[in-house]
Amino acid sequence: MDYLQYLRKDKMPHIWCDGCGHGIILKSILRTIDTLGWEKDNIALISGIGCSGRTPGYVDFNTLHTTHGRAIAFATGLKLANPKLHVIVVTGDGDATAIGGNHFIHAARRNLDINVIVFNNRIYGMTGGQCSPTTPTLKKSTTTPYGNPDSAFDISRLAEAAGASYVARTTTFHVAKMDQYIKACFLKKGFSVVEAYSNCPTSYGKMNKETGRRGVDMLLYQKDNMVPIEKAKDMSDEELQGKLVTGVFVDRNIPDYTENYSIVKQNSKK
């Protein structure tokens, strides 16, 4: 697999820290695009702000680096104006579910035909390790030095409940699954989400020792603590403490926004 054909080589090496999982997710996205044979001209990759937000700068597509949390809003306009584009949003946990939470759930509700890859490192990396909506309860960050009093969002369940067509979650260790899920996500008509737990050794790993301090330790932590969704169904809440539940949360064929709007257009001409 030649990744270089999809990269803006003069922008490399990328900005992400050593051991950061974001590059692993980006590679999976590029492998999937390669597998599907999509033309670069027909791909738009859109991000918000944060570590994940830097992704578009490195890839040779139509790329858009928007304001914080708003990538899905921009993507909505772009997809409707040019439906032939494959619109991929890459976003982080804070970008997608804190400042951009409203856009995320509403795009899922209207089942807009875009692909959203959530780089969930469970912390604000770019600004130096503040807690995010997915930082687990009582874990540390630079703004929760005594532990996080909040509960974490389950992004995949949120997307499922809001009406997405396809939702799957994996980790940066499980790259084969990631490829499989991203491919299904890209091929799905409607709002489709892959949430990937990513490793942030610089901030999360440094402050929360149980995951290990280095990227590779965090990858192995993910390997050891991953529980498939099928198995999780038979486990108690206590047993699931600290576990990373992965798998396909939803995969359904329901009309997407464009399909419904085409009926609106027909009705307008009656």
Partner: peptide
């Protein structure tokens, strides 16, 4: 290909 796929830096 574990190394290639897990190398975050395209290296």
């Amino acid at each position: 290909l574990q190394c290639e796929k897990l190398c975050p830096d395209f290296a």
